[in-house]
Structure formats: C-alpha cells, structure tokens
Design a protein around this nucleic acid. Structure first.
Lengths: 195, 195, 195, 195
DNA sequence: AATGAATGAGCCTTCATTCAT
DNA sequence: AATGAATGAAGGCTCATTCAT
C-alpha cells in the first residue's frame, strides 16, 4: 500500500467521482461527502487537495474540457481535407467517450452553471472559442468568411442542442442519429462532396 | 387587514418572483425566502400557497410553458400556409417575450433540472411533444414523413442550442441572428419558396 | 405562550447566555450551539437574530459596555465634587454588578480579542475614551492638565490590571482591596482631602 | 537527509513560531499547521516533539516565562539597593526584549487563557509569585510589611494594566511613558530618594 | 529525523418547513 | 390572509491528530 505519491491518484479519483455524482444528479448541487465517498476517501481529503468545493468543480470541468480537447486534436491530426476536418470535429462530440448519459448530464450542468460563475464561464468560453476556430479551419476554405462564421455558429448550436435534448430522452444516447442530423446540415451547406 | 381574492395575485407574484430569482441566479438553487422577498411576502405564505418549494417550482415551469404555448397558438392561428407555420413557431421562440436573458436562464435551469425530476421532466416532455407536432403540422405537407421528422428534430435542437449558447454570451440576446440561422436551415431544407 | 414580540427577549437571553458562556470558558472560543443551548433556543435562531457569530459577539460586547456606561452615568450623576467623581468611577468598576468572576472573564476575553478585530477594537476604544474623559472631569480641576492626563492613564491601567490579575486568583473577587489600592494611589496623588 | 541533534533547534524554532503566530493573532487560537509552517516544518513534526498542541503551548509559555525570569535575575544581580531592585524589576518588564507588540499580545493571550487551563494557570502563578517576592525583596526594607504587600500588588497590577492597555493602542509600545507611570507611583510611595 | 496521507469530530451557517397567532 | 417565531437537518470547511514510510 503505497503511502506516497497518492496525490495525482486521489485527484483523479475525486474528479472522476465528481463527474459521476454530477452526471447522476444532473446538477452541480452535489455534496463533497458524496463525491469523496464515491472516490473512497473522506471529504476532508477532498478539501485538502482542492481547497474547496469550487476548486474541485473547476478542476472537474477543466478535466472534461481537456479530454474533449485531446480527442478533438487527435481526430484533427488525421484529417487534412477541410471537409473531413469538420466531420471529424462533429464525430468527436458524439463519440462514445463523450456522448454518454453521465458525461452529457455533467456537461449540461456545467454549461448552465457557467452562466453565473466567473471561472466556469471563462473555461467554457475558452472551449467555445477553440471549437469555433477548429470549425473555421475546416469551413473557411469552403465558403466565404461570413458564411463560414454563421455555419460554424449553427453547427455549434446544433451540437449543443442535441446534447441538451438528451435531457428529455430515455435510454442510451443515439449518437448515430445525432451525427446524421449535423451531417445533413453540413451536406446541404457545402454540397454533397463526400466528407 | 386581510383582503379577499388575494390568492391569484399572490400566486402570480410568487411565480414572477421565482422566474426572476431563477433567471438571475441561473439555477433552481434559489431560496424560498429570496423568492418570497421579491414578491413582497413572507416565505411562509409561499408555502401556504404552493405547499412546498417543489410545488412553486413546478407551478413556475408550468407558467413558462403555458406562456410559450399561448404565444405559439396565437402565432399559428394567423398562419395557414405550412411554410409560414414553421416560420411562426421559430419566430415565437425568439420573440421578445421569450428570448430575454432572464427567461432564457430560467428556461435552461428547468431544462437541466428536468433530467432528474419526475414532474419537471413530464412537463418538459409535454412541451417537446407539442413543439414537435406543431412543427410537423408545417413540415409534413412539404416533405416525406421521415424527412419531416428529422427536420423537426433538427429545428428543435437548433432552437435549444441557440438558447443554451446564450449562456456564454454577454449583452442582450440577439434574436435576429438566431432566427436567421434557423431560417437559413429551413430554407435549404424546403427550398427557397418565401415563408 | 406569546408567539409575537419575542425578538427582544430572545436577543437578551442570547446575549446573557453569551456572557455566561464566554465568562465560563474565558475566551470567545465558544460555540453558537453552546450559547443558544444556554438560552434555551436552537443555534439557528441565534443566527436568525444576529446574522452570524460575530454579530452576537459584538452585540454582547456592546451590551457589556452599555451596562458599564449606564452604571457610570448613574454614579456620576450623584457626584458633583471633582474628587468624588473620580472615586465614583473607580467604585463602579469594582461594583458588584461589574466585578464578578463571569463578567471579568468575559471582559478580558473581549479585551484581548479586540487586539485584532476591527469592530470589537472600535467599541473598546470608545469605552476607553469615555472612561478617560470621565476621569479627566474629576481630575482636571485638581491638578495641572498634563499631570491629570498621566493620572487618568495610571488609574485606567490600575483598574485594568486589577481586573486581569483576577485571572490568577481563586475565590470570589475582592472588590474592597482593589478599590483600596486605587484609592491609595489617588490619595497620594491629590492629597488626603476626603473623597 | 535526517540530521542528528536537530531536536533542540526544531523545538526552539517551533516555540519561536508559536510566539509569532500567537502574537500576530492575539490569541491561542492558532493552528498547528500555521505554527509548523512558520517554523519551516510539517505539523506532524510539531506533534512529534510536543505530543499535542497543548504541549507546544505550554512549552511556549514556559519559554516566555523563562526569558523574563532570566532577564529579571540579570537585572537584579546588578542592583543591591532595595530601591534600585524595584526599579530594575520594573525596567525589565518594559525592556525592549519584553515590551514589544508581538510579545505583549502573546503574553495577554496566555494570561487570559490561564483563567481556565490547569497547567497554564500554574505556570502563570509561579511567575506571579516570583514577581511578588522579587518586588518584596526591594520593598520590604523600605516600609512596613503590610504596606509593602499592598505596594507590590499595586505595582504588579500597574504593570499588567499597562500591558493590557497596549491592546487598544496603535504604533510601537512606548516603554518610557509606561515606566514613568510606575516610577511616579513608586516615588510617591517611598519618597523621592533617587532609585 | 521528518513528512505526506488521511480522517473524525466539530463548528458555523443555511434553508425548507411548521405552527401559533 | 398572512406572518413572526422557531427548528431539524444537512452541508462546507477546518483542524488536531495518527500512521506508515
């Protein structure tokens, strides 16, 4: 039983537990004790590592954002054609790693909370900017700039809308139909050249 | 000096106060005292009229839904052409009465909360069904059924997505650009016949 | 059982309980629950009336100060001769109402805490100023100004010193010997004219 | 790399840190972590050396008392005349080593805490006895025994009073004026023979 | 010799809710 | 019709303390 170097493990366990708790409850209104309990530690330890609940929540959101960012980067690294870059971004957002019940619920909870919390808002904006510029890197070569801007905005809205509408559905998320909807939009927008 | 016939006024005042409080805070995590205070009454009275916090929240959501429903009905009553029916629905969702900062925030808060609360979920689903069938009443005559279904789904997602993305923006909501995005999608979908 | 107009009674009961608790423990490090329990109410009610622990502590100190102030005023109102004014002030500080174990301990606790708390410090300073000017009103006619100033300072120090030294003693405070010490000093200072 | 012979250094560092922490905060309500941090060690080490917080606090008070005792002994060793013995004692209490903001605050904190802690109380009493007998060694030759007793008591009270009244003042302690007050009292008491 | 890891206990505070008036 | 009074329950956070290394 290693008694040193536990910090990164605990941090990670606590963040995972936070995602689970938030995802299950569908809001940030979860207790530190619940999270800590899921991670198998005392709530005092959670405070020890993250200072306060807010610290843990921010770290959790950062983690979510970082994971998505990594997936997107990976997906983009294998897509050189503009069209396929856009498709790759869309696909990642509905990939198995991202588009699962728990993650979706946590994601939305953070999204809504970001409306009124300085730091969460900042984090989410950074992500939004990155998404936008990633989309633009694929769209810009295919249409006039202003058109590309609006298209990027629409795709982002579609993605977020498809996420939020999961809130009403039962059963496992259907990534395929979600992707189809976005792809359909894209196809109309930039013509039916294969992605 | 107690007055008679106060009940409906108080109920309404409390619901308005709830919307304001929730909208301002961006979540359902508001206190009964805050709401009651805004309505100018004691929190005990809020309990008297709504039984419990949950009751008030449900009544508030019902109110939001009812208002939107009324607006949609009104808009539809003046639109007989399929194409213009769809346009009318979209326009209502971004009308001044609906698409304001406070209402948007409250709306999202309920949306996310609905993920895990029986009654709120039920209410939101009813609304979603109504929206869907309203959209279908406009789309069905214009395209094959399955295509119409998917289009209705996409429009609904777009609307919700444009709402949620308001969470990141500053300044007053820009209804015009939101409508333009949905209309653009619609136009591509059903051809450029004027709405 | 009156259910209205309780506020002043509860406030007073809580302040008395606070004095008792602080006096018994000899420091401000008492719990709200302890205080509330002594007052026969829940700790939530204490918060309801005083906002927070700090509020209750400040109110308590204010109460202590106000009582002493009132006693001093009363004593002074019956003393017109300069010499007897000084004597009256000294006597009040060691009167039965003030110079009891519990009050002394509470007093010291506040005194020490005032070193680093803005509001308590402010309150204590006001009291110190008042004491000083009261003493001066008696001493100024009897000696040169600068001498009077120093004498007032010495008397104040003697009083506080006799208070703090109670911390080491057992048994009930001996007011008579304390008064004798201050009177002895005074007598030497201003001559043996009868007080 | 553990070093041998660290114990006395660590103990001393921790005690110094405790004085600093207590002096700064003005109360014994400081955390072990704070103290340990100031001493540059972990709080676990503080426990290792002192067993518990109480142990460290007692050691700290003992240190304060011991230092004062040493200073007094030194001062007395150079004063053979009764009058000058008393003066020496007074001077030490307001010497630079003792009469500084931090030490004063720590001193008072211990004083007040001693009201209700067995060991601290015992320690403080020992010091008080020593002070008393030291004063008596100077006063007894100069006046009747009972008069000397009362004078010793008054001087002790004056010293403590001048200490506690520092709690209300800003700026660096003014030792000169404090000494002047005690000396003035002494001079009146035992006549104006030079100290 | 020294520390990181970990926790239990306790405190302040908030809040929905109840009740007598 | 309406409220002030009051509380139980729960949550965030702190801290002294222990233990294995």
């Amino acid at each position: 039983m290693p008694k040193v170097g536990m910090e990164p493990l605990r941090r990670r366990a606590l963040i995972d537990a936070a995602i689970a708790a938030i995802g299950e409850r569908g809001s940030l209104d979860v207790t530190m004790s619940d999270i800590a309990g899921r991670a198998g530690v005392s709530s005092a330890l959670a405070h020890h590592y993250f200072g306060a609940k807010e610290g843990l929540l921010q770290a959790t959101m950062r983690h979510l954002l970082a994971e998505l960012g990594r997936d997107v980067r990976t997906a983009l690294s294998g897509a050189s054609e503009p069209r396929s870059r856009v498709a790759a971004i869309v696909r990642v957002n509905f990939s198995e790693a991202q588009f699962q019940e728990e993650t979706i619920a946590a994601w939305l909870a953070f999204y809504v909370a970001a409306q009124h919390s300085g730091e969460l808002r900042r984090l989410l904006r950074i992500y939004a900017c990155r998404l936008h510029s990633n989309l633009m890197s694929g769209l810009a070569p295919l249409m006039p700039r202003s058109e590309a801007e609006r298209t990027a905005e629409a795709i982002a809205a579609l993605i977020d809308g498809l996420y939020i509408r999961r809130a009403l559905k039962d059963g496992p998320p259907n990534a395929a139909s979600a992707i189809a909807i976005v792809e359909d939009f894209l196809a109309m927008k930039i013509g039916y050249s294969s992605p």
